[in-house]
């Protein structure tokens, strides 16, 4: 086992309690279950800047008027510190740039539509939101379809 490797269930407990405690004691609402979401917070961050710089009227949440949603850059920074600190930074060339660009476009568009990245879908399910559960069920079904495609790709390449 690699040095400093953390079990995923430990991550679940630490991150889950931090997210709920942040909402309860730092007042990260409204909307509810909003203290961590990469899609929605990125949306708020970009729209705040677009509104401030270009005078657009893109929608933001009420929370985004109080605090600056630096979630996505902060996650990047934290992961960068971890990757450099444990010597796991390895530059890999891009194989399919356009394909990954389109993946990002699609995930963000549908994430805005259903108000959540995969993380927030799980958070909403934990909060007991019915639509979060529906989204999680849809996501599991989508992953199952994706594994079928991956299997087909494997059997073609072998």
């Amino acid at each position: 086992m690699r040095r400093g490797y953390l079990k995923p269930w430990v991550f679940g407990i630490i991150a889950g309690s931090m997210i709920v405690l942040a909402e309860a004691f730092a007042g990260f609402y409204p909307p509810a279950a909003y203290s961590f979401c990469l899609t929605c917070h990125t949306r708020d961050l970009v729209n705040t800047f677009m509104n401030g710089i270009f005078g657009a009227h893109f929608q933001t949440t009420i929370l985004a008027r109080r605090i600056l949603m630096l979630t996505s850059p902060s996650v990047l920074l934290g992961a960068l510190i971890a990757a450099h600190g444990y010597g796991e930074y390895r530059r890999q060339k891009s194989t399919h740039p356009l394909r990954y660009f389109l993946y990002g476009l699609v995930i963000m568009t549908f994430g805005i539509l259903i108000f959540g990245c995969p993380t927030r879908i799980v958070i909403r399910t934990g909060y007991g939101d019915f639509f979060g559960m529906v989204a999680l069920a849809g996501m599991v079904f989508g992953i199952w379809l994706g594994t079928l495609l991956i299997r087909r790709r494997w059997s073609r390449s072998v």
């Binding site: 990954y100 079904f141 989508g142 992953i143 379809l145």
Partner: peptide, 12 residues
């Protein structure tokens, strides 16, 4: 939306 997110995330 959840279905598409799951499918595309798996591919990515």
């Amino acid at each position: 939306g959840g279905l598409v997110i799951g499918l595309v995330s798996t591919l990515a």
